[in-house]
């Protein structure tokens, strides 16, 4: 079981070479196949995830959640997707049409790119990038631009307010986000995600870096625009924020991208802090799925408990609390590493 997917990949390459393809072309085709698989997984995953969030939030509120279509209402999301696909596509007449239309596509492309570097199991990633973590952070911050495009292109005050909020928020939270990961990088000595996983052979980084874990969790919630930091959307205040003017499938793309981001960030959290695909008995790719879903459930739990924070508090929380704390964590980690080396433990 463990090497199910890697063996499949090797078999595929071998088969292609026997067909007479040069190894380079075989690699390219394999990459394409990997991409297609990832996109399929993402889509399927999102369908389950949306259903799961509705179900979980319902349980928190003593409701039943979707229960009409299929067992436990599991096909509800599919029905919703069909509904969204058949809806009228409205583009406001005053909108900047090009920006308005490209924003959702841009958002989802950026979100899917995140999956390139995440190790889905032992030796299972699209590209084994040696700056994987850096790639992930920089790709993640690109989604700000998509939101700004959506807000600006819509020519709507609510959208613009949402977009401006999201830019302010994401830029502020990028810093503690990166800083909190630095501690991990310092210990493992690598930006390659597979190396980071390997470094957690004995002990998970969540135990070595609890402060970093917490700051990363908070900053990631803000990066994901999830409650209690869902400023850009802010249903009850900005009536949907940057997404106000979007309908049908365009809106659904934003929705999909948000969940795609959620899975990616949760997977990264599982990789960096929770030992990645490492775990006993079960195959590695199952472990990462379990851990990712565990993190996602915590995200759900937080969102469905807390009220939304106020914009100015949000900013001051980032600059006055999270940034100093994560900086302090770097200092502490450095001191710890120095101490270890001095004692000759590592």
């Amino acid at each position: 079981m463990e090497h199910l997917f890697t063996n499949l990949a090797t078999a595929l390459t071998g088969w292609m070479i026997t067909l007479g393809l040069s190894p380079v072309w075989a690699d390219v085709i394999l990459l394409l196949v990997k991409w297609i698989i990832i996109i399929t997984i993402i889509t399927l995953n999102i369908i389950i995830l949306i259903w799961l969030e509705r179900k979980v939030s319902a349980f928190f509120q003593e409701r039943l959640g979707p229960n009409r279509l299929g067992p436990f209402g599991i096909f509800q999301t599919i029905a919703d997707a069909i509904k969204l696909l058949t809806k009228e596509d409205i583009v406001p007449s005053a909108a900047d049409k090009l920006i308005f239309k490209t924003a959702p596509m841009f958002f989802i492309v950026v979100a899917v790119m995140l999956y390139t570097v995440i190790p889905m199991g032992q030796g299972m990633e699209v590209i084994n990038l040696n700056i994987g973590l850096l790639f992930f952070i920089s790709m993640g911050s690109l989604s700000t631009i998509a939101l700004l495009m959506a807000g600006w292109g819509s020519d709507n005050k609510w959208s613009l307010m949402g977009a401006v909020r999201s830019v302010a928020q994401m830029i502020s939270y990028e810093i503690p986000l990166a800083f909190s990961l630095l501690g991990v990088v310092m210990i493992s000595g690598s930006l390659n995600l597979q190396d980071i996983v390997a470094a957690q052979d004995n002990i998970w980084f969540v135990i070595l870096q609890p402060i970093a874990f917490l700051t990363y969790f908070i900053a990631a919630t803000a990066e994901l625009n999830r409650g209690p930091f869902d400023m850009p959307e802010a249903e009850q205040e900005l009536t949907g924020g940057a997404y106000t003017e979007y309908t049908g499938m365009r809106w659904a793309l934003f929705f999909l991208a948000e969940y795609t981001n959620l899975v990616a960030v949760s997977a990264l959290m599982a990789t960096v802090f929770l030992g990645g695909w490492q775990g006993p008995w079960l195959p590695s790719w199952l472990w990462i799925i379990i851990k990712t879903y565990g993190v996602i459930l915590v995200f759900f739990w937080v969102k469905w408990t807390f009220p939304r924070i106020r914009m100015d508090h949000l900013m001051s929380f980032s600059w006055k609390v999270l940034v100093p704390v994560s900086l302090g964590n770097i200092l502490l980690t450095g001191a710890g590493i120095y101490f270890c080396q001095w004692m000759g433990w590592c």
Binding site: S57, F60, Q61, E62, R63, G227, P228, D230, A234, E235, Q236, W304, T305, F306, P307, R308
Partner: peptide, 16 residues
């Protein structure tokens, strides 16, 4: 007030 401030679950408990 709960839902206006984003605490959706507060709404459901009050309504319940």
């Amino acid at each position: 007030t709960g839902i206006d401030l984003g605490a959706t679950t507060g709404l459901m408990y009050g309504m319940r």
